[in-house]
Design a protein around this nucleic acid. Structure first.
Lengths: 216, 216, 216, 216
DNA sequence: GATGAATGAGGGTTCATTCAT
DNA sequence: TATGAATGAACCCTCATTCAT
């Protein structure tokens, strides 16, 4: 088994280097997202990012162009995940199937990637000065979803609601478990590292939304 | 030329001076909340606060002890408003009356005081490092509300839900209109200074919640 | 004699402060010119300027906006001196009077203000990237002088020469005693702080130029 | 895939390698002179030199010991050219022949090698901190020329002048066309890449000097 | 009470150079 | 020989805060 490796050593070597470099950039981005989530673009310090990544500030600056560029890249990365998150979701099996799946995915993402959600929320809270530069398709995707919701109402599958506001409300509820995770734990009597009950949260939001949309 | 100044000085009593000083502190606090909402504690600059207040940085520092202390005071102020906000709300007229009123008050506050809500959300998002030091009663109030909601379910007035999570969800939806106000405008096709439709928002959230809580 | 001072104390106080601030800016500019003369814009360090001015780097930055702006201001200052330098020079008494005076003034300036001349020469040597932004009138003044020289030739007062190149040559010779002052001392066997013989230099350049322009 | 490299390696003899290495050093030196001319020793960056040479910064540092050493080598190189420049000049055919030739050579060098002249001038302007370490013979050569000029005056071939200052003045005028080349173009109404009129410049300087030295 | 001046600490970033391969 | 990675020192500049009047 050593032979093939030896033969392709040169290429493997390069691949290793490239992979290592890529991994370090990923590592840096992850550290940056935590720092940006906690302090925003202006409050984040490259020293803080370097510390979180476990590297020196100089080394960090060897891998990035600037704090701003790193922020933009992190934001782009998050919007990319956002879009990927709904790959394969059932669009044609009616509101119940779709919304259950959508809510479950969003809650899971909030619980597993709170820093990403917080950084994103922080950007939005600041008026999204950089968001639209890196995510051109957000409005289009939202409008598409609005048309889908409107069609459900047309077919009598759900109560007639404002489709845009419904999306806002689902976002707000699902993202809350990242934004206010520490408060949720505090109010629930959990310790700072105890996990939140994902299934319970999903069930509660889903029930509220599906019942809330029921035709009267 | 000194005479008019001396005369006007005599006319200003101690109470006036104290009031004037208090007004300036209020003015500074308001400016600080906007700056803290936009940049967080670390990202906020005392120069930025001074600029927003229309005073010099030196003068600002004459009136405050430190940026941290100003942040804490602003946070205390916000939690005070939060508590005041539900003065006189009907606790005994059933869920529909209470929740309609509660949602309406919260939405109105988000639309009229977005900076306060954003600063508060930022603090929570950071893990609320200072919040609990300045707001001891938050958990108690939340638990009280949970008991009220539980009692409604006991009486068959609403579907049985997790009372704590219901509160989280109502907070999330109502505060969203401060947190993501700019995105809401963007997605709605509004200009950055166009007002959001308060009545419509209140109606949509209220309908979703009340329907969502209906006993099946 | 104390009375008037006491009466105008307030104004004198303010004037003193303003004057002190102005003097410090002058002092900083002088230090900067020496540093810029020695190292150019890019090679100059604000630490070096602060050291030469005998103040801390932080204090320096309190008085300037940026290194670039300080460079531009210094350059503007120098071009201003340049223009002032020829106030009251006799334009209408023929080439001999004019050129003698002009050469004497330029040599004197080079010997008394070598750093100013060196900084200026450095800027020109780099292609004058900032010079034309701060000195719009240089070309016009040069062309005016060219017309004057041309007129002298028309009147047969001097040999016909290229007026522009004559100016270049006079500049070059007179400014050389700032640019290569240390070499001039070294070749003359003088110590680094010995003064160059101004009268002798003026006499030699003047003789070369006036003889060189004589009609044959 | 390694074969062609190995083959070509065999073809490259030691002399070739050494020559290639020497050519690269020459190339680097040329790039360095341009960078040093524009920014001085302290303002020059090894990155800038590497860019001008079309190689990586790492490769540059593989070929040089330090920026200082490269500066010193470039300066040595220039003083070598300086000395070579007057090979074969007629020392014994009188002032007119000598000075005409000398001025023509110096102007030509300034026009063809402006970076070399500018870098040299910059060094001199800084007080020549490194020049005398690399160019021991400069004073001797200058004094020799002074004796020659003095002899011409003794023989009545030229007016009696200070021989040292005469040399300064010829240097200043001829080198000016490298030092202030951009200003000369600007004042002449030429574009930044238009050539200066060498013959005209030589003629003007020569006429001024020869006339200026004429016995009255 | 109020304000220009001042400052030590730290901000993001680039530098010439060395390391490791 | 050649090169990507790494680094300590230094860069210009801003920060929250205090001083001095």
């Amino acid at each position: 088994m050593a032979a093939p490796e030896a033969l392709s050593l040169r290429h493997v070597g390069r691949g290793d280097l490239a992979r290592k470099r890529g991994e370090l950039r990923d590592h840096i981005r992850a550290a940056a997202i935590v720092e940006f989530a906690e302090h925003g673009l202006r409050g984040a310090s490259t020293q803080g990012i370097a510390d979180r990544a476990g590297i020196s500030k100089t080394k960090l600056h060897y891998y990035i162009d600037s704090k701003e560029e790193l922020y933009a890249e992190a934001l782009t990365h998050i919007t990319g995940i956002w879009a990927d998150l709904f790959e394969g979701i059932a669009l044609d099996k009616g509101p119940e199937a779709f919304l259950s799946d959508y809510i479950a995915r969003k809650v899971r993402f909030s619980l597993t990637h709170p820093a990403e959600v917080r950084m994103f929320t922080g950007e939005v809270m600041r008026g999204a000065p950089m968001l639209h530069a890196v995510w051109a398709g957000s409005r289009e995707a939202t409008l598409r979803a609005s048309r889908l919701i409107g069609a459900w109402a047309d077919q009598g599958l759900i109560r007639r609601v404002d489709p845009l506001l419904l999306q806002f409300h689902i976002w707000a509820m699902t993202e809350a478990y990242a934004v206010m995770a520490s408060e949720a734990r505090f109010m629930s009597g959990l310790g700072p590292d105890d996990p939140l009950d994902e299934a319970h949260i999903v069930a509660e939001i889903t029930a509220l939304v599906l019942n809330g949309l029921r035709v009267q």
